[in-house]
Each structure stands twice: as C-alpha cells, then as structure tokens.
C-alpha cells in the first residue's frame, strides 16, 4: 500500500488527472448558473424592447408620455382616432406610490426606532418576525382584504367624512359612494411597503456603534434626543436606501392595486376618483386588447416600469452595499 493514498490506484494517470477535471467542470457549471441569472435581466430588457418596437415606431414618444387620453379603441368604431396616452397611468402610479410612501415612512421609522432603541430585548425578535410575516403575505390576499374589508369601510365610513370635512383641500372631490378609489389602493399599498422600509431602517439603526449613542447619552440627552442626534443622522443613508427600495416595491405592485383602485383609464382628479396604475393596467387590459398596437403600447409601459425599477433597485442596493447592510432584504 503506497503512503499518501489509502487505496491502490487503478492507474497512476487517473490519479494525476482526476482532481483537475472535476474542478474544471465544476467551475464551468457554476459559471453557467451565474451567467444564467445575469442573463435573465438582459433578456428581459431585450425582449421588452422587441415587443414594444411597434409602439416605438408608430406612437410618437411625447404624445405617449404626456398624452392624457388612453383610447386604443377609438379608431375601431370610427368615432375618433386611436390615442395612446400613458399619462393617466403614470399619474396613477406616481400618486398611489407617493401617498403610500407618505403614510409608510413615518410609521416604518417610528417602528424601527422603537424596535432598536426602546423595545425590551425579549420583544425584539418576535416583533421582527411579525414584521417579516407582513412582507410574506401575498399581494392577492392584500387585494382581497382591501376589496372585501377596506372598500366598504372607505365607502360608508371614511370617504364621506373626508369629502365633507377636508373637501376644501380640493383633494377629495367627486362622488364618494364608491370605495374603489386611488385612496384605498394607496392605503393598501402603504401597508405593503411598511415591512421593507422597517426592515432596512432597522438594520441601519442597529449598525450605529454604541459609542455614538453613549457620547450623546453622556452629554445628558434624552432618549429621543439620542435618537434624533446620534442614531438617525448616522443611519440616514441606510434609511434612504430602504425608502427607495420601498418605492420600487410600491411602483410595481399589481394585484392589490388592481383589486382596489377602480380600474378607470383616466387621470384621477381627486383621491376619491377611480384610477389605474401601469401594473394594474397591464393586468387588466392585456387580454382585452382591441387593436394590434395596444399590446406593444402596454409593453412599452412595462419596459418603462422595468427600467425605472431596475434603476431604483440598483441605486438603493449600491448604497446598501457600501454600508454593508441590507442582508435580509432579498427575501422580501
């Protein structure tokens, strides 16, 4: 029995070659997996550009981007021309996401502050798990709850009050007897965005070194002042990245929005109007398409959405990577 090898080799050539080949094949296979993943992103952009090409060719870009009327069927019945204005959906997307963020940010920050600065130790992990569960709830279930539970509440209890008491702001005009509104969709969206912002803000705040906080405490700062003067400034970039990621999620939400927003293809003039976002439009109209140009137009919007969410995600992730945060965010 030769030393260094417990078993007699079948042939010395085999022994000498075996290690190299196994490693080489392994490298190739894992490299394939890696390229596959990267390739999907590139393929997505290419495919959508391809699908949207007819729309690029035939619909002038400015009238697409700023066109206020979406009437692809107009030219079919001969009443007017086919118009493909995307503004109603861009507006709908922006309005719902903005309101969702406005509501989600203070709640998420408050929750993250409580979790990291004030909550007793035994509470932290269970509560964090609850917040992660919130992120796990499927979009359709949020939509279902929004449709069946929230919509009647808005319709009968909330909207009339809003229109009556806050009508002077001009935000709550129009008929109030429908619960499927931009406002309702925004509310559901804000609940869905909270877990993302909370989780990343929490990571950012936990990364604040104790020395920073201790410096403030030793100067006689109250707990809130410690948070405001030490923790928040230090974790500012991480929090911003979390908000940006939350925005990305809000922009792309489909099911919950399409079940609560009313699906009206026009620019919403008040928060109580029905509206439509880009994702909800695609979900609604993809197979209702009347003219051959409609699907490419939808694809153009999808491409638009893709590029924006890619840019948002890339930017936020780069910030997080530099701060060495955002570990768990991929699971949301």
């Amino acid at each position: 029995m030769t030393r260094g090898n417990p078993f007699p080799p079948r042939s010395s050539r085999q022994i000498l070659r075996a290690p190299k080949w196994g490693d080489r094949i392994f490298f190739a296979l894992t490299m394939l997996g890696a390229l596959g993943l990267a390739g999907i992103i590139i393929a997505m952009v290419v495919a959508l550009v391809h699908g949207a090409t007819p729309a690029f060719d035939q619909i002038p870009f400015t009238s697409f981007l700023f066109g206020r009327i979406w009437d692809p069927g107009g030219c079919v019945n001969g009443t007017s021309t086919c118009v493909y204005g995307a503004l109603p959906f861009i507006a709908g997307t922006l309005i719902t996401s903005t309101i969702a963020l406005l509501l989600a940010i203070p709640l998420s920050l408050g929750a993250a502050i409580f979790l990291t600065q004030h909550a007793p130790m035994w509470m932290r992990e269970p509560v964090a798990q609850v917040v992660q569960l919130l992120a796990a709830v499927p979009s359709v279930v949020y939509g279902f709850w929004g449709l069946i539970v929230l919509v009647p509440i808005m319709r009968y209890d909330v909207n009339p009050v809003l229109a009556h008491d806050l009508g002077w702001t001009g935000l709550f005009g129009g008929p109030t007897n429908i619960g499927l509104t931009v406002l309702t969709a925004s509310l559901v969206l804000s609940i869905m965005t909270v877990p993302t912002i909370t989780a990343i803000s929490r990571d950012a705040m936990e990364a604040v070194p104790r020395s920073q906080k201790e410096a403030a405490i030793s100067l006689g700062a109250t707990p809130w002042e410690v948070t405001r003067r030490s923790v928040l400034p230090y974790s500012r970039s991480g929090i911003v990245a979390g908000i940006v990621l939350g925005l990305g999620r809000a922009l792309g939400e489909t099911m919950a929005v399409t079940m609560t927003i009313g699906n009206r293809n026009a620019i919403p003039l008040s928060l109580l109007s029905q509206g439509q976002t880009i994702p909800s439009l695609i979900a609604n109209d993809f197979f209702e398409a009347i003219t051959p140009l409609e699907i490419p137009a939808l694809m153009e919007m999808a491409l638009f959405l893709l590029i924006i969410t890619l840019a948002i995600n890339l930017g936020a992730r780069l910030i997080l990577a530099r701060l060495q945060l955002g570990r768990g965010a991929a699971t949301e």
């Binding site: 495919a47 990621l245 489909t254 695609i282 893709l306 995600n313």
Partner: peptide, 28 residues
C-alpha cells in the same frame, strides 16, 4: 460581487413585468 447585485436587482423587478417578459419570450 456583480452577480450578488444582479440577484438583488432581479428580485426588485415587478412580477407583472416578469410575466410580460415570459410572454414575449414564448410568443416571439
């Protein structure tokens, strides 16, 4: 490192867009 970043970015793509992408892929 770029690969990890790509995975994170991919996870942020709206699922409806992924649906449209597969649609194009298979159809065209």
């Amino acid at each position: 490192r770029a690969l990890s970043m790509a995975a994170d970015v991919l996870s942020g793509v709206p699922s409806i867009v992924i649906g449209v992408f597969v649609y194009v892929l298979i159809l065209y």
